[in-house]
């Protein structure tokens, strides 16, 4: 029932991370959803489509959901087009490595 608010949080985190890395198009998003989390993968997919249909950053992104045997809800990783953005979107495996520049450690 709260899948929409969860996906709002996911897309927000993706937008912030993409902006920090100057990524303009995300092609794949990987989530990990625990079978004890009370959250439906199919509802997550539906809400993801709903929220990204008009968003150039995310509308072509495939949502991959891996189910785990716990209660975890994890935004695991995403794949973005490298070098397709505003000039210096970074190169694959740049010197900072594939870490999330905008995230919290």
């Amino acid at each position: 029932m709260h899948e929409l608010s969860i996906i709002c949080g996911v897309t927000q985190a993706l937008r912030e991370s993409a902006e920090a890395r100057r990524v303009t198009r995300i092609r794949r998003v990987r989530l990990r959803v625990g079978r004890w989390s009370g959250v439906w993968p199919s509802s997550l997919r539906f809400c993801f489509q709903l929220l990204t249909a008009d968003d150039p950053l995310l509308r072509d992104a495939a949502l991959e959901i891996e189910e785990s045997d716990d209660a975890e809800l994890l935004l695991d990783s995403y794949e973005a087009e490298a070098g397709g953005g505003a000039g210096d979107a970074g190169t694959p495996r740049d010197q900072n490595g594939p870490q999330d520049a905008g995230g919290q450690r």
Partner: peptide, 13 residues
Amino acid sequence: PGLLEIKMARKML
């Protein structure tokens, strides 16, 4: 263009 994998490992909640 090549694809860049970005690790988030962030809890959705």
